[in-house]
């Protein structure tokens, strides 16, 4: 059995019962995303993949950058939630206006051209926000949701955990501390 509380008092039981009831009523999530809609996630994946495309190493999509952004939109990036919706909508509108299709359906070259004009438009702030978050998700620690399987660190040759030895010093033997005082 798991460790911890030894007894279950009335208050704890009521909280547990209420929460268990809530859990039982909670349905299966409709999308794998926490805050983004499925369409938003598809567009954002295509956007991020343009910023860091896949070559011999995984790109932003395979490195889980959108998962990172999606998780952080429920946490540190809560204040950017509206900005993301607006930016994704604006990009899709631009794609429809110029190419008569959603952004995610365009070819890589078409998407790159579109993003170049998007960056220079009044949406440059949103573009830079997504760029910043894409870089964070791609190069940051996997514990925050991105950089899946240490994709970028492997690309850079940075080990997930370096090999680090410890000096076997003794405080009683000044000779043993490798000259460290």
């Amino acid at each position: 059995m798991l460790t911890g509380v030894k007894s279950l008092n009335r208050r704890n039981f009521l909280v547990t019962a209420a929460a268990a009831g809530t859990a039982a009523c909670t349905g299966r999530p409709e999308t794998p995303w926490r805050t983004l809609t499925a369409d938003e996630a598809t567009t954002l994946e295509a956007w991020c993949e343009c910023l860091i495309p896949e070559d011999s190493d995984p790109g932003a999509k395979r490195a889980g950058v959108v998962r990172y952004i999606d998780i952080q939109l429920t946490r540190k990036f809560k204040r950017h939630r509206k900005a993301y919706s607006q930016a994704i909508n604006a990009l899709d509108k631009l794609a429809y206006a110029q190419n008569r299709g959603p952004f995610a359906a365009l070819s890589f070259d078409e998407r790159s051209l579109l993003l170049a004009s998007f960056e220079k438009s009044e949406n440059s702030k949103a573009f830079n926000m997504v760029l910043d978050h894409t870089l964070q998700g791609y190069f940051g620690s996997p514990r925050h949701g991105g950089n899946k399987d240490y994709a970028s660190w492997r690309m850079l040759g940075v080990p997930p955990i370096p090999v680090r030895g410890r000096l076997q010093y003794s405080l009683l033997d000044p000779e043993s501390n490798g000259g460290i005082s």
């Binding site: 798991l2 704890n12 547990t16 929460a19 268990a20 909670t26």
Partner: peptide, 26 residues
């Protein structure tokens, strides 16, 4: 059916946090 109270309390806490939008990264 686990008889350990802490197990159920942890699950309950997670559900409460989830419903209040305090979702853990993982």
């Amino acid at each position: 059916l686990t008889t350990d109270a802490q197990f159920h309390m942890t699950n309950a806490r997670r559900v409460v946090e989830h419903n209040f939008g305090q979702v853990a990264e993982r």
